[in-house]
């Protein structure tokens, strides 16, 4: 397992994909913190700078994770590397988890670099963005990466070729980041008023992006951002039950796809022979 993880890291580090994404992410993070800082104002709750930073995370990290994971896995399948690997006496568990760890370490290094660069820019520009806020976002970014890397494994296992993996990743990404919310908005027009709050609550847990988005807004400033109409939801989600459910949902989103891809790999090996 350790070797598979190591090999995965090496492969990723040598590819230009990761470097490219790393540079893109770092430069965007730096630009947002530099241009949008409201440091001198003395307010460090949820504002539009933090919203932009959050949006960069919500847009880029899922995309990066999905593409890297699914393309590498499907590529290996296409090149028969995976099949070769499976002829060795290793269990599918250690293959998948090894690859997952390798992917995660690679993405982690990119994110750490990006956040580190942003912090340095904050220091040199003399802006007053709170470090605890950035740390929080860093944590949530890692969670996002953990969830979407695990999803990418499923895509990689399912896709027959690199191009198929690319297509599926993009469709899933676009749906989760953009269309999901429009769908919920549309639904909210059709539903009865008393059903709206439960519907919104459920919608948080069905989409990992919503999960992270809502949770990071709540942990920044809580009640006001979602407004008076959703005050009940806010109080519930910010309480103990909400927090527990959030962690539970995060673990489910991270573990289920991994387990599923192991299961799939066990069968898939049989299929392809």
């Amino acid at each position: 397992m350790r070797h598979i993880a190591k090999q995965q890291i090496t492969l990723l580090m040598r590819s230009h994909w990761l470097t490219g994404f790393g540079l893109l992410f770092s430069s965007l993070a730096v630009m947002v913190t530099f241009l949008g800082n409201t440091g001198g104002s003395g307010f460090d709750g949820f504002n539009r700078m933090t919203a932009s930073l959050l949006n960069i995370n919500l847009l880029l990290i899922p995309l990066l994770s999905l593409l890297i994971g699914s393309l590498f896995l499907s590529g290996e399948k296409e090149d028969r590397g995976l099949l070769l690997l499976l002829t060795y006496p290793v269990s599918p568990w250690s293959v998948i988890i090894g690859k997952y760890i390798g992917l995660f370490v690679a993405v982690w290094s990119v994110l750490t670099f990006g956040y580190g660069a942003a912090l340095l820019v904050i220091f040199f520009s003399g802006a007053g963005v709170s470090v605890s806020l950035l740390f929080l976002f860093y944590l949530y970014s890692l969670m996002l990466a953990a969830i979407f890397l695990s999803l990418s494994l499923v895509i990689g296992i399912f896709a027959k070729s690199r191009f198929q993996a690319l297509g599926i990743s993009l469709i899933i990404w676009a749906f989760l980041v953009l269309f999901y919310e429009f769908l919920i908005m549309g639904l909210s027009l059709l539903l009865w008023k008393q059903w709206l709050l439960p519907m919104l609550t459920v919608s948080i847990f069905l989409n990992p992006i919503e999960l992270i988005r809502v949770q990071s807004i709540l942990s920044l400033d809580g009640a006001t951002v979602f407004g008076p109409r959703l005050y009940d939801l806010t109080i519930w989600a910010d309480g103990v039950t909400g927090k527990t459910l959030f962690i539970f949902a995060f673990l489910l989103w991270m573990l289920l796809p991994v387990i599923f891809s192991v299961y799939r790999l066990k069968r898939g090996v049989a299929d392809e022979e």
Binding site: I9, T10, L12, M13, V105, A106, W108, S109, V110, T112, F113, Y115, G116, A117, A118, L119, L120, I122, F123, G126, G128, V129, S130, V131, L134
Partner: peptide
């Protein structure tokens, strides 16, 4: 806060670069 941010920033960049190069 700024001092802290510089230290953390440099450390985190160094660690990630180390991982990248080593990897």
């Amino acid at each position: 806060v700024n001092w802290l941010s510089r230290v953390i920033g440099i450390v985190s960049m160094a660690i990630s670069l180390f991982v990248m190069v080593k990897g």
